[in-house]
Amino acid sequence: MQIRVSSVISNSPIIMNVDCDMYSNNCDTIRDALCFFLDEEMGHKIGFVQFPQNYNNLTKNNIYGNSHQVTNQVLMGGMDSVGGPMYVGTGCFHRREILCGRRFTEDYKEDWNGGIKDKTQESIVEIEEKAKSLAASTYEHDTQWGDEIGIKYGYPAEDIVTGLGIHCRGWKSVHSNPPRPAFLGVAPTTLAQTLLQHKRWSEGSFSIFLSKYCPFMFGHGKIKLRHQMGYSIYGLWAPNSIPTLYYVIIPSLALLKGISLFPEVMIQNRKSLSLVSYAFYYN
């Protein structure tokens, strides 16, 4: 709805998306994002610029692990090298046209003055009437909104599906992580809140992996295999808890029981290994 209503108010070519519990923390964020879109060599390929999620209420010890440092510093940066990070639902700048379903073409060129030219002749009353009709709950019935146009509906983690769809239409994305956080929000402060949030994220991501939007099926032939694997890290977040629990529990129990974690090497094999190592070292 916001995409449609804003199209009759400003129709700006770039849309900023920020959650209601986050706020801007860096006055240079908009300029930084526009620098990517206006780049002479790669700017026309970029569909959205994603900033990491940062929080202003983290405790010193961060006992619930809500800082998302691995995601912000490693995973998102890694995906940046194979096609771009996924859309995380906040702290993002999109091209309006990609949210309206446009596919990437090499001859694409943004019309930065198009929205201004179209709005100069309309009155406030006309704009208000158009906005009301576009905001109606029945407007999307029997249309592509929520599927091919706008944010995809029907999934707890709709942001991942939306970003995957954008990448599969040929667009790239950029991960921007400036020293001063672009946006700050509020992280869960109790164990119950943390478990509830992680449950929603993990269930939503896993349901996407098991749906038609599985990165390996939906992205086959559209994005690189490494990019598909990057998306799958989030899709398999829930089942990954099983080997993680095994890694945490079993070695600890083995150490308490005095059980060796590694197979014992026979004396004869040790001598052979020493001779091989000696020969390799001096050769």
Rank of each mutant, 00 (worst) to 15 (best):
R270V: 13
T29A: 06
V265F: 07
F218T: 08
Y155C: 09
N177M: 04
F183V: 02
F93I: 01
V125I: 13
N25A: 07
G221I: 06
N11P: 04
C168V: 13
T29D: 05
P85M: 02
L99R: 00
I124F: 12
F51M: 03
P85S: 04
A157G: 05
R169G: 03
D147C: 13
I267H: 11
S67L: 02
I223Q: 07
T190S: 04
L164P: 15
V174T: 05
K224H: 13
G83A: 09
N62W: 08
S277W: 10
G165H: 08
G221M: 07
I127P: 06
K222H: 11
Q73T: 06
F93L: 00
K130R: 13
D147V: 15
C168F: 12
A135R: 14
W201V: 02
L225M: 09
S241P: 06
Q50P: 02
H198T: 04
E203I: 08
G165L: 10
Y234P: 04
Y234A: 06
T189A: 08
S67F: 02
I9F: 11
Y155V: 08
Y55N: 01
A182Q: 04
K271H: 11
A157T: 10
F262I: 13
V74F: 10
Y247I: 14
Q228E: 15
I166Y: 09
G89L: 01
K257G: 08
G65D: 10
T244A: 13
C27R: 14
S207F: 09
C92S: 02
M266K: 14
R226A: 14
T194A: 09
S274L: 15
Q144Y: 10
I160F: 15
K152Y: 10
L134W: 15
P239Y: 04
P179L: 09
S252R: 12
P243W: 09
D28A: 06
I267T: 15
L134D: 11
Y153S: 04
N269Y: 12
A187R: 01
L273Y: 08
I116P: 15
A135C: 15
A157F: 06
E148F: 11
R103T: 01
S274Q: 14
C92R: 00
Q50K: 04
S10R: 13
F104R: 02
E158K: 10
G221V: 08
Y234M: 10
A33E: 00
E41I: 05
R103D: 00
I149L: 14
S81P: 00
S12L: 11
C92E: 00
H141T: 14
Q53F: 10
R103Y: 05
A157M: 12
L236K: 09
W237P: 02
S277L: 13
K199Q: 09
K117H: 10
Y278G: 13
W201G: 00
